[in-house]
Nucleic acid binder design. Structure first.
Length: 634
RNA sequence: GCCAGUGUAGCUCAAUUGGCAGAGCACCCGCCUUGUAAGCGGGAGGUUGCGGGUUCGAUUCCCGCCGCUGGCUCCA
């Protein structure tokens, strides 16, 4: 007999070599039915795993994150099984679980799969699930497994196994289908009831553009139908909020094939853009930033000096003129270094902070362009801080303060990644360590949780990246804070310390919004286009009920305009319901409705886009309400 | 860049096996003078992404290019 300790602390006895599933049967009929895997001493294993000694056992259901991943992983196998049945000539590569989804990369042997094939594949999957085939774990010697997959012509599986260190590898068998897999898996295909195939995409084998292009089929699986429905609904919600749809609908911006990779900002979108830029300016002015503007095209010599020519050239737009090879700037740093050198700098001048909002151009492979979120032409809320080594922690803290001030204003939570010294680093390892320690110190002083991405830093210094989550749960990298020890050397930047000696400053590259284009794209999705009052391109629209009220509407609009609000008048001969509908769809925060009653009393009737009819206001009451809201950035 | 899909009016979408390119919304004009999410009538709007080819005839079939979408890779 063996003793089995359950999560609630109770201990039961079972015959030696009982399986986790058998124990589940004894513990709870519900768990027996619902368990998809087990955790033995913390290790996630199959329910069929035999227990040969005293252990801690936890039964895992699809209600848990881990259980759901097992379910999805098994569904990926089910899909592979179904595809292999329908198209026996395909070769399988890998089929992992990713957030909310799974995929399988498949070499389709020249017969591309498309969404048209999904119904047939799903039907085959359902049929295999109905058969409730048990998933058996089969252990094989590595050599044996290699021979097996070589014989079946599965070169991708063969390649994976040949790189494994273990002597034994595990395979999983369900009916006539067998696949290399670490597991664990659900006990049988009957557990796989709620799934849906989502999309098909290309993916290089091992992410390497020199290797074969495979087809990646994405699908999703859930414990319950209601969860799948909720997920599908969430995807639809995301599509509804997509900035590529909302931007043109709200007349903010558009994309045109005459100039791919760039944003055409319409008057309303540009209003929003300027408001955001002004917000950034205000926040930074309080911290003694100095705004500058520098050239946007320079001969290649500058970029050779900065190192971009060797490290960033494939992302640069190059222009050949008769005289010169020129490049459009992808970054501002070299120019700010030149400005730094304009004067002899004293330790008293540091930190020196140059900010710039000008245009940048970064070439990306054309297939990666994505609305405003990935473009060729962008603007950053960029700044470079020139500081003393001993100021690193303090200055990083100050930048973290800006990040917090800006992101909390929008109610956007963010995740921080600390990227440390990579293999191809330059400079003194001791300085790297000091800098990384200073970053950690600043993060901890700010009470910010962070994840370390070891070896992911830039060659010139460690960095902090900030992933922002939009309302739908997708993440985007916006803010970045990078320490740089190399550029001050390349540009021979110095300052004079208190003893009259020349010293080398450290640079911080930082962007808080990141790219204006990306941030605004995310912001549109975050608010689903219903911007807070202070950011709304049109803050109020005045709606006279009949033509006879147009003059009064003009007076009210003028009063709002004089108070500094952005106002439009809809004086068309349309019913009030019609005008309200249009204003609602344009997500205008305040609708000011004027009829004979209001005119006679000198009042206004106010409707708010989300609160509905607010009733009668005097003009001063409305102005003070709106002013207070703007002040709070509500 | 690569793989797959896709491209019809400002927007959303139609158009038997290849046979005169259409609807709703938006826009313009008129009527209505309107009370909190779509009043009525009329009008205009198209080289079907671009260029070739097959055909008596191409939105439809074939080829090339461009854009876009989903990904791979990279990053703000």
């Amino acid at each position: 007999m063996v003793k089995i300790t359950l999560p609630d602390g109770s201990v039961i006895e079972a015959a030696k070599n009982s399986t986790a599933h058998e124990v589940a049967k004894a513990v709870s009929p519900r768990l027996y039915k619902e368990a998809v895997a087990a955790k033995i001493n913390g290790e996630l294993v199959d329910l069929s795993r035999a227990i040969d000694r005293d252990v801690q056992l936890e039964l895992v259901t699809a209600e848990s994150k881990e259980g759901l991943e097992v379910l999805r992983h098994s569904t990926a196998h089910l899909m592979a099984h179904a595809i292999k049945r329908l198209f026996p000539e395909v070769k399988l590569a890998i089929g992992p679980v990713v957030e909310n989804r799974f995929y399988y990369d498949i070499d389709t042997a020249g017969r591309p799969l498309s969404v048209e094939d999904f119904p047939a594949i799903e039907a085959q999957m359902a049929a295999l699930a109905d058969q409730n085939l048990p998933l058996e774990r089969v252990m094989m010697k590595k050599e044996e497994a290699l021979a097996y997959f070589r014989a079946s012509g599965d070169q991708y599986k063969e390649e994976i196994i040949s790189e494994l260190e273990d002597e034994q590898v595990s395979l999983y068998r369900q009916g006539d289908f067998i696949d290399l897999c670490r597991g664990p898996h659900v006990p049988s295909t009957g557990k796989l009831k709620v799934f849906k195939l989502l999309s098909v995409a290309g993916a290089y084998w091992r992410g390497d553009a020199n290797r074969p292009m495979l087809q990646r089929i994405y699908g999703t699986a859930w414990a319950k139908k209601s969860e799948l429905d909720a997920y599908i609904k969430q995807l639809e919600e995301a599509a509804r909020r997509d900035h590529r749809k909302l931007g043109p609908e709200l007349d903010l911006f558009s994309f045109r094939e005459e100039s791919p990779g760039f944003v055409f900002w319409h008057p309303k979108g540009w209003t929003l853009y300027r408001l955001l830029e002004d917000f950034s300016r205000q926040v930074q002015a309080r911290r003694n930033y100095q705004e500058v503007a520098t050239p946007w095209i320079s001969p290649s010599g500058l970029w050779e000096r900065s190192g971009h020519w060797y490290h960033f050239r494939e992302n640069m737009f190059i222009i050949n003129t008769e005289e010169n090879t020129m490049a459009v700037k992808p970054m501002n740093c070299p120019y700010h270094c030149l400005l730094y050198k304009e004067q002899t700098r004293s330790y008293r001048d540091l930190p020196l902070k140059f900010s710039e909002y000008g245009p940048l151009a970064r070439y990306e492979k054309s297939g990666t362009l994505h609305g405003a979120l990935r473009v060729w032409g962008l603007h950053q809320d960029d700044a470079h801080l020139y500081i003393r080594e001993d100021q690193i922690a303090e200055q990083i803290s100050e930048v973290l303060g800006i990040v917090d001030e800006i992101y909390s204003t929008f109610g956007m939570p963010y995740k921080v990644n600390l990227s440390t010294r990579p293999e191809n680093y330059m400079g003194d390892p001791a300085l790297w360590e000091k800098a990384e320690a200073a970053l950690v110190e600043a993060l901890e002083a700010a009470g910010l949780p962070y994840e370390v991405q070891a070896g992911e830093g830039a060659f010139y210094g460690p960095k902090l990246d900030f992933d922002v989550t939009d309302a739908i749960g997708r993440t985007w990298q916006c803010a970045t804070i990078q320490l740089d020890f190399q550029l001050p050397i390349k540009f021979d930047l110095t300052y004079v310390d208190s003893s009259g000696q020349e010293r080398r400053p450290v640079m911080i590259h930082r962007a808080i919004l990141g790219s204006m284009e990306r941030f605004l794209g995310v912001l549109v999705e975050h608010y689903a286009g219903a911007f807070p009052l202070w950011l709304s391109p049109v803050q109020a629209v005045v709606l006279p009920i009949t033509d006879a009220l147009n003059d009064y509407a003009g007076e009210v609009a003028e009063a709002l305009r004089q108070a500094g609000f952005r106002v439009e008048v809809d004086g068309r001969s349309e019913k009030i319901g019609y005008k309200i509908r249009q204003a609602q769809m344009q997500k205008v925060p305040y609708m000011i409705i004027l009829g004979e009653k209001e005119k006679a009393a000198g009042n206004v009737a106010v409707r708010h886009r989300s609160e509905g009819d607010l009733g009668q206001f005097t003009l001063p009451e409305l102005l003070s309400r709106m002013a207070a809201e703007v002040k709070n950035r509500g």
